[in-house]
Design a protein around this nucleic acid. Structure first.
Length: 493
RNA sequence: GGCGACAUAGCCAAGUGGUAAGGCAGAGGUCUGCAAAACCUCCAUUCCCCGGUUCGAAUCCGGGUGUCGCCUCCA
């Protein structure tokens, strides 16, 4: 069964066939580096990271390019506020971006592009558009004449006439924004620098590029005329991606991208999370909160909804994701917690638990079901349900081993299940680290046994308060006690 | 006003013609001094509403209602 994905350009699901067999050229619109990333950004990059991972799992060689917009009015405003420079501000938030994404287990792009490093390509593109009569200079600015491009509106499904007619109340103010545009929908390719603003020299005078042109130039520089998949937030469809298409296709005469994928928004109380509404939570604020979720729980929160649908960010949703992650995590740690008890001989191997080193049966019913689900436009909620089946099976086995001494499934079968879980989870970017010493206790086994004996004595003396105190003390150090019939107390870390 | 989505249990969420996955929360039972952990079991006769097509619809068609996004920077 082929991988099919929903193409915003055609507004339907289509089978995926790349330009060159086995290779995928993928471009993702990145952030404007003027502030810390919020959960909307988190969702977008988690989703595209997952798509990329799945394509790789499916055997495609993926070349993934993402940009940083480091020239922009908002960065400029920020720099002015702090009496700093655009570059300083952009560098700071670019660095923060890398930190946040690493925590969310988002793979680094093959190439990161920066507006400040693409000036030549940008100017070349603008010049071509100018030569073709599609761009026109005006007072140091350069604008794109949208009416010169027949396909304008094909991605967002709108017509200039409709926008003009309907937008009467909102765009009329355009008439006062200088009136140097020939049409209110024309957009800036180049902005002339006002006194005191940073600038780059150009054939049209000193200035800086408009926002949309950088992506067109970057894609062309990195990939050529046409790529396979162009992704970004749904809020970029218009005008950003529409304008990218207009710029690139008018210049090259070729389709910019064969498939356009867009992720749904993160909502708060039913409204889009955004800077302008002020209802945003940054990734780091959420993760660093006293009772904040594990980054993997956040990842799970995002992937438990289909990527095109809106998701509502609420405390309850995060709490649910935390608990869900706990279950998955237990399953993922199965090899570390129970492998030795099952007689697995390679638990001390450096590669033990490493998905990349595992061999699993890709024809198994479980893997086939996972692929069939993911093939349907990256149905991660369905895929996660499969992960839960495996994780619960493993958790059950682990508990049987802890409580009864042995599981009711063969070590070989458990090995296969565990490896399948680890590998499939990794495709979704969900990974659990083995419990480290810091999360468990520094107590020696002997010390623990001694405390348990003390508790046993207290309980026999009906001094339950003391007994419970010892139990709580051990629990606080990550030691769980299990009182079994017959006065026997077992424990595990 | 234009364009586009979506509406499934207390909450989140799959499922696009064959009789409702999964997660969270909750309930009961076993066990316990009480717990915890664990194990077992239960938890939508029904998919926003009204019509229609069909042997059969959450799924298709028509109409309605509601919510959201985009039309300005936005992941």
């Amino acid at each position: 069964m082929p991988l099919s994905l929903y193409n915003s350009l055609t507004r339907r699901k289509e089978p995926f066939t790349p330009l060159s067999p086995g290779e995928v050229k993928m471009y993702c619109c990145g952030v404007t580096a003027y502030d810390y990333c919020h959960l909307g950004h988190a969702r977008s990059y988690i989703v595209w990271d997952t798509v990329r991972r799945y394509l790789m799992w499916r055997g495609y060689q993926v070349r993934y390019v993402q940009n940083f917009t480091d020239i922009d009015d908002k960065i400029l405003n920020r720099a002015r506020q702090e009496n700093s420079t655009m570059q300083t501000v952009a560098d700071r938030y670019t660095q923060a971006y890398f930190e946040d994404m690493a925590r969310l287990n988002i793979l680094e792009a093959d190439v990161y592009t920066y507006a400040t490093q693409t000036l030549d390509g940008i100017q070349r593109l603008i010049r071509e558009l100018e030569q073709k009569g599609i761009a026109y200079p005006a007072n140091g600015d350069v604008y794109y004449a949208v009416r010169k491009f027949d396909g304008y509106g094909k991605l967002s499904g709108r017509k200039l006439e409709d926008m003009q007619a309907g937008a009467s109340g909102r765009v009329t103010t355009d008439a006062t924004d200088g009136s140097i545009k020939r049409d209110p929908f024309d957009f800036a390719l180049w902005k002339g620098a006002k006194p005191g603003e940073p600038f780059w020299e150009s054939p049209w005078g000193p200035g800086r590029p408009g926002w949309h042109i950088e992506c067109s130039a970057m894609v062309r520089e990195q990939f050529g005329n046409t790529i396979d998949i162009h992704v970004g937030g749904a809020d970029l469809i218009f005008p950003h991606h529409e304008n990218e298409i207009a710029q690139s296709e008018a210049a090259t005469g070729h389709p910019l991208s064969r498939y356009w994928l867009h992720n749904g928004m993160v909502n708060v109380g039913g409204e889009k999370m955004s800077k302008s509404l002020g209802n945003f939570t940054t990734i780091r604020a959420l993760l660093d909160a006293p009772d904040g979720p594990d980054p993997m729980a956040l990842r799970l929160f995002v992937l438990q909804a289909q990527y095109r649908k809106p998701i509502d960010f609420t405390d309850a949703a995060i709490a649910s994701a935390k608990n869900s992650w706990h279950t998955l995590q237990e399953g993922l740690r199965f090899g570390y917690t129970s492998g030795a008890a099952l007689g697995w001989t390679d638990v001390d191997n450096p590669d033990f638990g490493n998905a990349g080193a595992m061999r699993i049966d890709r024809t198994s019913a479980t893997v086939q079901a996972f692929e069939a689900t993911m093939d349907d436009d990256f149905n991660t909620p369905g895929a996660i349900a499969i992960l839960f089946d495996l994780a619960k099976e493993l958790r059950r086995a682990r508990n049987l081993i802890v409580h009864e001494g042995q599981a009711d499934v063969s070590p070989e079968q458990l090995r296969q299940d565990w490896q399948t879980l680890v590998c499939l989870a990794q495709v979704l970017g969900l990974e659990a680290q083995p419990e480290t010493a810091s999360t468990t206790s520094a107590l020696t086994d002997a010390a623990i046994e001694e405390l348990i004996a003390q508790r046993q004595a207290a309980r026999q003396a009906k001094n339950f308060a003391e007994g419970d105190r010892i139990r709580d003390e051990l629990q606080a150090q990550g030691i769980t006690l299990i009182d079994k019939p017959g006065g026997v107390t077992e424990w595990h870390r």
